[in-house]
Amino acid sequence: MDKLQIALIIGSVLYLAVIFWLLKKNKMSIRYSLLWLASGAVMLLFACFPYLAKVLRAITGVQVVSNLIFLLAIVFMLIILLSLTSALSALVDKVKRLTQANALLEERVRRLEKQQQD
């Protein structure tokens, strides 16, 4: 095992540990953690068995192993960003509905209070 490999393994383990820590502290919901955990698992896998990356390189026909790794990393990030945008859009819609329902209720309360006073 060379120095680089050890550093990569430590890095991936730390990365996974941070995700688990966030989960434990309830600062990330399990739903959104799955993609991040998957990315960490793949990173750890490649760090432990570099041979895997070489096999994958041969299969896909990518010229250099590092390019394959970068490609994988970018694909993961794109997927995560997409899922975040979709989650954000859903959230915006929920906040909108909540705001509207709240405003309608507030108006009703105001009207009823006025009726009671009269």
Partner: peptide
């Protein structure tokens, strides 16, 4: 009037 609690 409706008073929205946040700007929509």
């Amino acid at each position: 009037f409706l008073d929205l609690p946040s700007n929509l």
